[in-house]
């Protein structure tokens, strides 16, 4: 009986030693020598693997950061400025501070403003509907409402509003990783400067058709009349291809443009309600 026990112990121990030896040799043979800074940099990155940096994941981006001589062009849209500063410190390189950005959906074509003209019954993907035709409404640039942007968001920062059929960005959660911007087949979503108290003023339309046509399909379309351009005291608004665009970096949030828009295509968000009298408005950057 004791023989059996001894044999089993000996044979198992031998097996164990053998396995350990093989593992050790293989580990030595296939050892990859890595820059230890990659791990340090990776720790500072958000670890969401969102692809916002155009690399397959945070680790790959960390490697890229360590390898590159000049890292000022490399940017993780999700990481905070402190994170990036820490990375710059680890690597001993310079990095520019970036403006915080937030995704903005530039379409306000709710069913009320933009009536349905047909019923879409294909696979529920914006990109498929977009390649098929103009969409359920008549607007060739408007939101298709099938949620490609929602599906790509890694941060749960964008969701569909059941009533309006349009995506809504939750500013606090949005990291400006650019995923939804890329996913939208109609380029409706734009990364814009994040202002105090998440205030924003933007032209909520990207339709470049002639005013009449655009208006026919959507009551809140930009018709390219140019009144906002004239109104803007900071030359922040440009008009191109029948479409006005407010430059978020030039805009000082004076709110002068929104009231003059005949189609209410300019949206003001998170501002205090306007007072009835117009004259009280419009101290530059006057949200105090």
């Amino acid at each position: 009986m004791s023989d059996v026990i001894v044999y089993s112990i000996v044979s198992l121990s031998l097996l164990g030693v053998l396995a350990a030896l093989i593992l050790y040799i293989i580990a030595q043979k296939f050892k990859v020598i890595e820059d230890p800074r990659i791990d340090l940099v990776e720790q500072e990155l958000p670890g969401a693997n969102c692809g916002g940096c155009a690399m397959p994941g945070c680790r790959a981006f960390a490697e890229q950061l360590v390898k590159a001589d000049d890292i000022s062009d490399l940017n993780c849209p999700v990481a905070t400025n402190e994170n990036m500063a820490a990375i710059a410190k680890i690597l001993g390189k310079e990095i520019a501070e970036k403006e915080p950005l937030v995704a903005v959906v530039r379409c306000n074509g709710t069913p009320e403003f933009r009536p349905k003209t047909n019923h879409y019954d294909g696979a529920s993907e914006c990109s498929i509907a977009h390649s098929l035709y103009v969409g359920e409404s008549g607007c060739p640039s408007g939101c298709l409402g099938l949620g490609d942007c929602v599906r790509v968001c890694n941060f749960d920062a964008i969701h569909m509003d059941e009533k309006t059929g349009l995506p809504v960005v939750i500013d606090d959660k949005c990291t400006a990783c650019n995923a939804c911007v890329v996913a939208c087949p109609r380029d409706i979503i734009e990364l814009r400067k994040k202002n105090k108290k998440d205030r924003k003023i933007f032209v909520s339309c990207i339709n470049e058709e002639k005013g009449g046509v655009a208006r026919k399909n959507c009551k809140v379309a930009c018709i390219g009349c140019g009144r906002c351009v004239k109104e803007c005291p900071f030359e922040a608004i440009t008009l191109e291809n029948n479409l006005a665009y407010i430059d978020p970096f030039k805009c000082r949030l004076c709110r002068k443009c929104a009231p003059v828009c005949p189609t209410n295509a300019i949206l003001e968000i998170n501002f205090p309600p306007r007072k009835e009298k117009k004259e009280k408005e419009g101290t530059p950057a006057g949200e105090k």
């Binding site: 349905k116 003209t117 047909n118 019923h119 879409y120 019954d121 294909g122 696979a123 498929i128 098929l132 035709y133 359920e136």
Partner: peptide, 8 residues
């Protein structure tokens, strides 16, 4: 009624 549009 609205007509249906779907891919082939």
């Amino acid at each position: 009624k609205l007509i249906t549009v779907s891919p082939s």
